[in-house]
């Protein structure tokens, strides 16, 4: 499973997504992540392990964010990997998700 639960307490869940977030994983990711949306008030998703993200992966993040807002859940994306940052910058979506993006110094440019 490419989604790991790192911490789960008092309606706060910290998850991390590993490897790719693409059309090939979209269905599986959607099922797992929407399940987590059901029982939590706070969700943090660590994206540092995302090696590849395509438009289907991005669409899923957009979907989750909208879903979370509708269910009044705090959805926070953290530790954006280089692949995620590249896509957010390409589509100018940083503000949309509203999470601070930390750019690591050791990324190859």
């Amino acid at each position: 499973m490419s989604i790991k639960v790192n911490q789960q307490e008092h309606q706060l869940t910290k998850l991390s997504i590993e490897n790719e977030m693409t059309i090939y994983t979209a269905l599986e990711h959607k099922t797992t992540l929407t399940d987590h949306l059901k029982n939590n008030k706070d969700i943090q998703i660590d994206l540092s392990g995302v090696t590849e993200i395509d438009c289907a992966g991005l669409q899923l993040l957009l979907f989750l964010k909208r879903q979370a807002i509708e269910q009044q859940i705090n959805l926070t994306l953290t530790q954006h990997s280089q692949a995620v940052v590249e896509v957010f910058e390409l589509l100018d979506l940083g503000n949309h998700f509203g999470d601070p993006i930390v750019i690591s110094a050791d990324w190859k440019q």
Binding site: A26, A56, Q59, L60, E70
Partner: peptide
């Protein structure tokens, strides 16, 4: 400038993550 929007993306179960709504 680039705007991304998805007015027709369904909510909840119905949303098919393999379909493109963007």
């Amino acid at each position: 400038q680039i705007l991304t929007f998805f007015p027709e993306m369904p909510h909840g179960e119905v949303m098919d993550p393999e379909s493109c709504y963007l």
